[in-house]
Simulated assay, not measured.
Amino acid sequence: MGDEPTAIATASRVETILRENLVRENRAIDAVVPVLRHLLVSEGQRLVSDAILARVRGMLSDLAAQLLAAADGRDPALNVVGRIDADARDALAESLAADRGLLTLCHALAVESHLAERIHLQRGIDPVLSPLLQELIASDEPVIAELAMNLLAAQSRFIQSQRRMELPLSELPAELFHAVLSAHANPRSDTAAGEALARFQQNYDEATTRIGLLARLVAAMRRGAVAALALDHAGLGLFASTLAALSRQPRAHAVLACHEQQGARLALGLRAAGLGPDAIERQFLLVDPAARMPSDLAAISSDRARILLDAAAG
């Protein structure tokens, strides 16, 4: 009985510290979009790394080129740079940068690919074929094996696209895909162009996108998905999707939790996903060996961690 007040006091103290850290980390995340918008139209700033900024700018330019191709009735996946008016592309890219949801997605993808490459160099974790994905490809369950094989191909395409600073329209989440096309790909020529654009929209399938495949694979793994909460075993892509699913937070937030100065978000996310302090500490060391894990994290239950994340997001 005498230990109960002490435990309550410890949990309250840890929760206060985590709340304060989340407020600080949220400020950093909230500042990203305005900073990106500023940097996309200016030079000489260093608040966002050059590598991340270049990838975001490249993705927006690539999306603009695809939208112009779609508006002309051509297959966006086969657009030829020489056939796109550069001024029109740049103007459209600037317009796309005003879309907070799209800019947030581009930033998260750029961060993910950048972190995956860094982890590959530092830890030797392949950004395409992780040990866990290799095991899932060999699974006795046909559904899991097929999803894993499809994900392997999608992950390879993602890494290659990021190196070219590109983002296929067909890889956008459904809500963004339809919103972006409706707002920016109105056919400018004949009926044939409109029909071609309609076919492109009809052929879109969110379930076959990389993020869609990741979500489906995590769901198919059921209770076994907890195995993907080991970054060095699962790889960043599968780790982030699993963390997002099990902690019930946006995938972009799960990706950013693996970035520097987002320790409270990572700790709470892993706790909300059901991991204990020792397992959480191992992930901390993989993400940032110099980071300090919040003490007495065991005093925060998984349910309470999820509530704290929800409150921070709201």
Results as ranks from 00 to 15, higher is better:
A225Y: 10
E260H: 15
A257Q: 03
A245R: 14
A207I: 12
A240G: 05
S170G: 14
S182N: 14
G237L: 03
A244P: 02
Q162D: 14
R157S: 12
A174S: 06
R216M: 10
T208I: 14
S182T: 11
I159C: 02
L214S: 08
S241G: 06
Q261Y: 11
A254I: 03
D205M: 07
E166P: 07
V255A: 15
S156L: 00
R188P: 04
F177I: 09
L243F: 01
A228S: 14
Q201Y: 05
V218R: 06
E171Y: 12
R216K: 15
S156M: 06
L256E: 13
R251W: 07
A183V: 06
Q160C: 04
F158A: 04
L243K: 00
A234G: 02
D205L: 15
G237K: 04
A185Y: 06
I211Y: 10
A193K: 07
A192W: 10
L246R: 13
L243T: 00
L167W: 01
H184G: 04
S161T: 10
P250N: 10
A252P: 03
A220P: 05
Q249I: 13
L167N: 00
A225W: 09
L197H: 07
Q262T: 10
C258V: 01
D190M: 06
H253N: 12
R199F: 11
N186D: 10
A220R: 04
Q249P: 08
F177K: 12
F239V: 00
Y204F: 11
A254H: 05
N203Y: 11
S156V: 01
D190A: 11
G224R: 15
A153P: 01
T242G: 01
A252V: 02
N186R: 07
A240R: 00
